[in-house]
C-alpha cells in the first residue's frame, strides 16, 4: 500500500480534527493512580500484604460486607496453613442437614464452606445500615471502573464536604463516590488495626492492603493468568516469526 492511497483517509481525519482539543472531562471524577504490586504484565500479589489486607477485611469490613464467592480454603493462597484456616472457619456457623432425624442443624464452618456473610439476606443488611445495602466484596474490584485505584481512593476520600453541600443524616461526603453522598461512614482511620508484622497502620497503608486483598478476592487467577500469558505470547511470537519466514520462502517463487 503506497502513501498516495492513504491521503484520502488522512486528510479526512485531519478535517475532522480541526475543532479545539480540550483538556479533562468537565465534572468527571479523576481517580488517583496508585502503585500496585499486581499491576502490569509481570504483576504478582504480595502475600504479606494480602494477609494484612485480610486482617483489615476481617476486623473492619466483614461486619457489613460479605465475601460470599470465596471459600475459607481459598485462604491457603495467602500462605495460611490448613490448621489456621480450619481454626478461622470454625468461628462461624453454617446451617447443614437434614440429619438422620430429618432436622436442620447448625455446625461450625469447614474450610470447604463459603465465607459466611454478616447478614442472612439483603433486607437484613439494609435494615442494619439505614436502608443502604453494603455490597458483597468478592468482585468489587472488577465491578467498578479502575477498581483498585477506585477502592483505595474511596477509603481515603472522606474529605470535608464543600461549603453548602447538603448531606442527609447518616450520609457522608466522599470525594470519589459517584454523587459524593455515601451511606457508608468512614470505615478506616489511622491506627484502626494493629498489624502483627509491625507495618505502620496508617490509613494509606491499610487502604492499600485491603484493596490488594480484595483484588486477590476478585481475581485469584491473576498470577497464573499473567505467567501463562507471558509464555503463550513468547511461543506465539516465535511461531509467528517462523510462519512469516516460511511464508516468504514459499512466496519467493511468485512474481
Amino acid at each position: 500500500m503506497n502513501l498516495k492511497k492513504l491521503t484520502a483517509p488522512l486528510l479526512l481525519t485531519l478535517c475532522l480534527l480541526a475543532p479545539i482539543p480540550a483538556q479533562a472531562a468537565g465534572g468527571a471524577i479523576v481517580l488517583p493512580e496508585y502503585e500496585w504490586s499486581f499491576s502490569g504484565v509481570f504483576g504478582t500479589y504480595d502475600k504479606p500484604q494480602l494477609q494484612r489486607g485480610f486482617q483489615v477485611y476481617k476486623e473492619v469490613c466483614s461486619s457489613c460486607h460479605g465475601l460470599t464467592l470465596k471459600s475459607y480454603r481459598n485462604l491457603s493462597d495467602l500462605g495460611y496453613s490448613d490448621e489456621e484456616i480450619k481454626a478461622f472457619a470454625s468461628q462461624f456457623e453454617v446451617w447443614d442437614g437434614p440429619n438422620d432425624e430429618g432436622d436442620m442443624f447448625k455446625r461450625p464452618a469447614l474450610p470447604s464452606d463459603k465465607f459466611v456473610p454478616p447478614f442472612p439476606n439483603k433486607n437484613a443488611a439494609r435494615a442494619a445500615n439505614n436502608g443502604a445495602y453494603p455490597p458483597d466484596m468478592s468482585l468489587i474490584i472488577k465491578a467498578r471502573p479502575d477498581g483498585a485505584n477506585y477502592l483505595k481512593a474511596l477509603l481515603m476520600g472522606y474529605d470535608p464536604a464543600p461549603e453548602g453541600f447538603e448531606l442527609p443524616a447518616g450520609v457522608s461526603y466522599n470525594s470519589y463516590f459517584p454523587g459524593h453522598k455515601i451511606a457508608m461512614a468512614q470505615p478506616l482511620t489511622d491506627g484502626q488495626v494493629t498489624y502483627a508484622d509491625g507495618t505502620p497502620n496508617t490509613l494509606d497503608q491499610m487502604s492499600s492492603d485491603v484493596t490488594a486483598f480484595l483484588a486477590w478476592a476478585a481475581e485469584p487467577e491473576m498470577e497464573e493468568r499473567k505467567q501463562t500469558g507471558v509464555r503463550v505470547m513468547l511461543f506465539l511470537i516465535v511461531l509467528t516469526g517462523l510462519l512469516y519466514l516460511l511464508k516468504k520462502r514459499i512466496w519467493s517463487s511468485v512474481h
Partner: peptide
C-alpha cells in the same frame, strides 16, 4: 500459498487475542 499466508495471519491474530485474554 494461501494456507501459509493464512497461518501467518493467524499467528498475528492469536497474539492480539491472547494479549486481551491474558493481560
Amino acid at each position: 500459498y494461501y494456507t501459509i499466508k493464512d497461518l501467518y495471519g493467524l499467528g498475528l491474530f492469536a497474539l492480539v487475542w491472547a494479549g486481551f485474554v491474558f493481560f
